[in-house]
Amino acid sequence: MKPAPFTYHAPTTLAEALDALDRVGEDGKVLAGGQSLIPMLNMRLASPAHLVDINGVAGLGTVDVDATGVRIGALARHAQVAGHDAAHSVVPLLRQALQLVAHPVIRNRGTTVGSLAHADPSGEMTAVLSLLGGSMDLARKGAARTVPAAEFFVGPLESCLEPGEMAVSAWFPVPPPRTGTTFREVARRHGDYAMCGVAAAVTLDADQRVLSARTSYISMTATPLVLDLTEAVAGKPFDAADWAAAGQLSADQLDPEPDIHATADYRRHLGVVLTRQALTDAATVAAAQPQGATR
């Protein structure tokens, strides 16, 4: 459990980091929080020839909040984002999801952007970014681009990041008014990757009737799956809507793979149950908001 030899780069500015990444191309890997990369290096499941450690780069640890959303910098740690009250007040789903990410010691070092760049379909933040319709800001030497969540995740542990490119920040937009969100999951042990996890967002109209009911999932698909389940509950008062029907509606669209912890049948069953529970909770949260607010 010792990594293979690699060349270590320690840039102090973003320009230096991008320059280093540009030079090493396919042989390079960005080291941020290291909570996934370091174990992979130690087990020699990954052996990049160059590690570009961005921990010394100034200005990447930011969490910027305005009325339209939250922009999270590449070095912002999970714990920092989860504890950010201003971010929580405009995009509560961030904290709701982050408290389910692993354990405190991992959240203290692991970065939110790093977790997204890792593109693990069991990572809570992939479902959050996808459900909210957020995007990733990517940069390379001399160029930058913004990629919507739907295009960023390409496969399991695979994003559209190209050699020489780096995820600089992630953008989580504020959901529409009268929207409530929740994150529910079932894991084998506290803090484990979930066997199934569901992020839900329910938007009500001014009369507390359902305008929109959407969910996204972790550990169920190779890339984040977002479902619009509104048709089962559209126009119904939030407390009289048939959320179980919305859960059932998700069943046909969930086609999980089995693994050593859960059969496909059980995962699908969890998906249906958690969909109902998460939507019910999200609707209750939405209804409890003062008119025009978002929680």
């Binding site: 079932v186 084998r188 066997m195 912890h261 859960a262 059969t263 049948d265 059980y266 069953h269």
Partner: peptide, 11 residues
């Protein structure tokens, strides 16, 4: 016994 196995037994 795991939750997944208990679920299968229930089925």
């Amino acid at each position: 016994i795991s939750p997944s196995e208990l679920y299968a037994l229930r089925q």
